[in-house]
Each structure stands twice: as C-alpha cells, then as structure tokens.
Computed example of a mutant assay.
Amino acid sequence: MFWAILFQIFLYVGIIVLVAYWLFPLHDNIEKYFQNKVVWITGASSGIGRELAKELARLSPSTRLILSARREGELQTLANELHLNADQCLVLPLDLELQYDCFESKVDLVIERFGRIDVLINNAGISQRSFIRDTAYTVDSRLMNINFLGTITLSKTVLQHFIERQKGHFVVVTSAAGYVGSPLRSTYAAAKHALHGFFDALRLEHVRDHIDVTIVCPGFVRTDISLNAFEGSGLKHGKMDPKTDKGTDPTKCAYDILCGISNREHEIYVGHMASVTIYLRRFFPRLLYHILLHTKST
C-alpha cells in the first residue's frame, strides 16, 4: 500500500513538472530575467565561462556582456564569434591573482561604459592535481589567491555598487569539491569550501539590500580544467582526466546554470555526478567515504 501511494505521488509530480516545462519553457525565463541586464563573466575565455557567454548571447540578445579573463586575445575572438559590438560587449582583461589592487578601476570602467552592473558571475579559477605531501606552499598560496581571495575581493568591490543600487546578483561557480574533498585536489577543495562559507554569509548579510547569491556546484564537465590544473611543483598538469573527458557537455551545463540564475536559486548542481555526490555527502557520508576510497581520483 505504501509503495503504491508513493508511486502515485511521484507519477503526479512528474506529470505536473512535464506540463509546466511544456507550458513555460525555461529559456523564456532566461530571456525575461536577463533582458537588458549588464552581466560580467570572469573566466570567459574558455570552459563554462565561455559557454555562459555564448548561451546568453543566443538566448537573451539584449543582455550586455563584460568578458573577463587573462587572455585578451581569446576574449576578443569570442566577442567576434558572437558578433557583439561595443554597445553590447566590453572585453576587459582581468587577472584575479595579480590585479586585486586594480579591481576598483575595473568596476569604474564597467559602470562608465554601461551605467551599472546587474549580475557578476564569478567563474574564473584553476584546479589542482597533486598529493598534499607533494604540493609546494607557493602552489597552495596561488590556488587560494586565484580561487578564493581574488574572487571575494572582486565581489566586495562590486558589492558597494549593488548596495547603492539596492539590487544585484552574485553568482559564484564553485564545484562539487566545495562539499566533498577528494585526493589530488586538497587546496582546490579548501578554496571552494571557503567560497561556500563566504557567499552564504554574504547572502544573509545583504538580503535587505535585495542582493541575490547563487552558488553553482558543477560535477564533471567536459572542459580543459584538468589540462590547466597545477601540479605540486606549480607546472601545468597538461593531461585530460578520463572522467572530465566523459563529463557533461559544457553548453548544457551553461544552459542549466542560466536557468538556475534566472530562477534566483540559492544553489545549483550541474554536471555529471554533482547531485549524487553532494546528496551522498549530506545523507550518507560514510558510504561516500568508502566509494571515494575505492575510486580513482582522475
């Protein structure tokens, strides 16, 4: 009897979800939410950041984009590929590790061009492939500076603008590693855990300023993240992880992220194994420990 009732509940909920999806396509929500907004994307030269820019240009043509990363040439190529002119796009080179003292001038430049910032998508970051015992202090420091300190410093600079406007939306792309530490990613996971703590606090502190915070936790997404990851010496890993290579298509990942942002979700789990890993950590931590213990980390 219990199982029959449970099955009927799931059946009815499934039907409602399908009907709602058919009647209210998610891309309509994306276009409506991002209409005429000014959106700043860091780490836009590759991976998830690049796909977010491409999907926004496709689904919400009225959105004005600020594209930031270290590689200005890649950003300009992307802007040209999307046929974005100077009224629609600002290519703004940015190094989270080295340019923290220039963030205020960068924010001023964006406001001078577009008059405001509506959404800051903190996507830039770098991963790690090294055991704790083999990781130099300089690598730990760089991982924290890029993934955590650079991100929160830029966000704090934009925060004052959001407070003055009494409106704004922070999006931070962390990782399933923000919930679950795993071998070869110790400091990377620590930085992502730190981002969760910081942005959860920011959300609570500034709810009365009408500032939204969305934390994005990707699992395995098919990007170059492992190719660019630091090894213990600081050199690039330069190898594609098999699980990453078989991960979720980054275009689908970007679409799911934009859906979550437009719905002002507090957290979004996207990419292969993200939801499974996070919910196992939450409800069955011992089971997840044994799974990770017998699973290759690459």
Results as ranks from 00 to 15, higher is better:
286 R>A: 01
20 A>M: 07
61 P>C: 03
189 A>K: 11
6 L>R: 02
48 I>G: 00
53 A>M: 15
123 N>L: 07
133 R>P: 00
39 V>S: 07
220 F>M: 00
278 I>P: 09
257 I>K: 12
209 D>R: 03
128 Q>C: 00
211 I>T: 04
176 A>T: 01
283 F>D: 10
286 R>G: 06
78 L>S: 08
66 I>V: 05
233 S>G: 04
182 S>D: 14
83 H>E: 11
166 Q>I: 09
264 R>C: 01
253 C>E: 13
7 F>S: 12
279 Y>K: 00
288 L>W: 09
144 M>D: 03
200 D>Q: 15
24 F>R: 13
111 I>K: 07
296 K>Q: 02
226 S>N: 13
243 K>N: 14
91 V>C: 05
220 F>G: 00
91 V>Q: 06
77 T>D: 08
31 E>C: 02
12 Y>I: 14
61 P>G: 04
127 S>R: 02
276 V>C: 13
25 P>V: 05
268 I>L: 01
188 Y>N: 06
185 R>V: 04
222 R>M: 12
33 Y>N: 11
65 L>A: 04
55 E>C: 07
130 S>G: 06
160 Q>C: 00
297 S>F: 01
66 I>F: 14
124 A>I: 05
230 F>T: 06
5 I>F: 03
176 A>G: 02
278 I>Q: 05
50 R>N: 11
138 T>F: 08
151 T>I: 01
248 T>A: 10
158 V>S: 04
42 T>D: 02
52 L>H: 12
66 I>G: 09
112 E>W: 08
67 L>K: 00
78 L>E: 02
97 E>M: 13
293 L>I: 00
289 Y>N: 14
152 I>E: 03
214 T>D: 03
267 E>M: 14
26 L>S: 13
75 L>D: 07
35 Q>I: 01
246 K>M: 04
27 H>W: 14
189 A>E: 06
68 S>M: 09
208 R>W: 08
2 F>K: 15
292 L>F: 15
31 E>P: 06
206 H>E: 04
265 E>N: 09
248 T>Y: 05
273 M>I: 09
75 L>E: 01
64 R>K: 03
254 A>I: 10
200 D>H: 11
253 C>G: 07
207 V>H: 11
181 G>A: 14
85 N>G: 09
70 R>L: 06
278 I>R: 12
155 S>G: 07
236 K>A: 09
203 R>Q: 01
281 R>K: 12
289 Y>C: 04
18 L>W: 13
47 G>K: 03
142 R>H: 07
196 H>K: 15
35 Q>Y: 15
170 F>R: 04
50 R>I: 02
10 F>Y: 12
70 R>D: 04
1 M>F: 03
15 I>F: 00
101 D>R: 14
222 R>C: 02
89 C>Q: 08
10 F>P: 01
101 D>F: 15
92 L>H: 01
64 R>Y: 11
230 F>W: 07
56 L>G: 02
198 F>L: 15
